[in-house]
């Protein structure tokens, strides 16, 4: 699935895809772009409930600009991205994290 979504230019993506995700880091390195292996952090750490109060955790998924980091970048699974989304939106309401930064 990964090669379909995040790597448009065909040749490199296809070759890497067969060997699975382990290859991804190396392939990206050649292009001079840093990419971590994409696994859902919340699944790995067994975090079931993402609270809007946990700013330190949430802040990792908010890039400079203040937008919510998309799943295709962070690798978060759908379930957790949904929960993260709610948490971020709540945290914004009570000014724990910004809506947008410039």
């Amino acid at each position: 699935m990964s090669e379909m979504t995040d790597r448009g230019p065909a040749s490199g993506g296809r070759a890497g895809g067969r060997q699975g995700r382990k290859d991804e880091k190396g392939a990206a390195g050649r292009r001079g772009m840093f990419r971590r292996r994409r696994v859902c952090r919340f699944c790995v750490d067994h975090i079931d409930h993402i609270s809007y109060k946990d700013v330190r955790l949430i802040a990792q998924f908010i890039p400079e600009r203040g937008k919510i980091q998309p799943r295709r970048i962070s690798g978060t699974c759908a379930t957790h991205q949904r929960k993260l989304q709610t948490a971020i939106k709540r945290a914004r309401q009570i000014a724990l994290i910004p809506y947008a930064t410039d």
Partner: peptide, 8 residues
Amino acid sequence: RRKLAYEI
């Protein structure tokens, strides 16, 4: 006391 993420 906390700094607000944006001015209210």
